[in-house]
């Protein structure tokens, strides 16, 4: 093969490989969406599990009151997504309430106050946490944390929203910390020096100068943490009790959208309405995390533009 032909061939291979990333993303959407479509389009699936049944209250018998229930495996299958949605939101809220103050506080401390030797301890610790597989965190929550929390708070249920939420928070902390800390250290030292020269204390500088400057990045960190919490599966699968009940109490067990897929896809009949609903849930998750990801990136871009002076 002549040199020029070989060069073109190699370039073609490289171009095709690069497109596979796009192809992969598109394929994911297509193939999951494809199995989810019957929920919207197929007559027989919609009968059992159409959009109205997924989102609006249903009465199982004409005489009984309307309710939101997820019981796909029962005489009268019920497919309301509400219990799963509230479960997801509950777990996420607990996780963020736990993780955000810790992660953001640690990020501020690490970038503004900690001496460099201490930073050499903090960053690896966070990386250690990031390296713990989620199944291990779920295991820890299931075996150790649940008992501890139950004893501490005198709860009825061992596996509940608080347990799952805290474990979820542990998984979220590294992402929030890393992005927030990057944003804070990206703020040029000259901002801080200018503030100190005007007589401000380190905390005033941090609070009034650095944090506002890094705000887009910190917001991005929270958004990314949020996205991670929504999509996480193994932790909730092991630590939340997996009960699809519609309840706002943090001490009750819950079931999230992702855990539902994990728990039920194994036994579902291929092509049944249940099967399609699970894929529908997967599509929702995909779209949602896609959106939060874009949002997070948009804010990181904004931070870069702000710090480089092209935008306020």
């Amino acid at each position: 093969m002549s040199r020029r032909a070989a060069e073109s061939a190699i370039e073609a291979v490289i171009r095709v490989s690069a497109s596979l990333a796009i192809v992969g993303l598109v394929l994911i959407f297509v193939f999951i969406g494809k199995e989810a479509l019957p929920v919207l389009l197929s007559q027989e699936v919609r009968q059992e599990a159409g959009l109205s049944r997924l989102f609006l209250p249903q009465s199982p018998e004409p005489s009984e009151p309307k309710e939101f229930a997820w019981q796909p495996i029962s005489a009268i299958p019920k497919y309301s997504l509400l219990p799963l949605l509230t479960g997801t939101i509950k777990a996420t809220v607990v996780a963020l309430l736990f993780a955000l103050p810790l992660a953001l506080g640690a990020a501020v401390f690490s970038s503004e106050f900690a001496p460099s030797w201490l930073r050499e301890i903090i960053k690896p610790s966070i990386e250690l946490l990031a390296g713990i597989p989620s199944v291990v965190l779920g295991f820890f929550a299931l075996m150790v944390m649940a008992t501890y929390i139950q004893d501490l708070l005198g709860l009825d249920y061992r596996l509940n929203a608080i347990n799952a939420g805290i474990a979820l928070g542990l998984a979220v902390i590294p992402i929030v910390f890393t992005v927030a800390e990057d944003a804070l250290t990206a703020v040029p030292q000259s901002y801080r020096e200018g503030s100190i020269a005007l007589g401000a204390t380190p905390w005033q500088t941090a609070w009034r100068v650095v944090l506002p400057a890094a705000f887009p990045g910190i917001f991005a960190a929270c958004v990314l943490g949020f996205g991670r919490a929504i999509g996480e599966t193994m932790i909730v699968l092991m630590a939340s009790g997996n009960a699809a009940v519609l309840s706002l109490s943090p001490t009750d067990p819950l079931r999230t959208l992702s855990a539902t897929i994990a728990a039920e896809l194994g036994e579902v009949v291929h092509g049944s309405p249940h099967y399609h609903v699970l894929f529908f849930i997967g599509t929702l998750l995909f779209l949602f995390t896609f959106a939060t990801n874009l949002l997070g990136q948009a804010f990181v871009e904004r931070l870069k533009q702000r710090l480089s002076g092209s935008r306020l």
């Binding site: 994911i28 989620s134 990314l224 999509g231 599966t233 992702s258 990801n293």
Partner: peptide, 18 residues
């Protein structure tokens, strides 16, 4: 960047479906 944010379970669904 977006592949990096897709939940792991969605990959599992993709593995099954595709």
């Amino acid at each position: 960047q977006n592949l990096a944010g897709v939940p792991a379970i969605v990959f599992g669904l993709f593995g099954l479906g595709f």
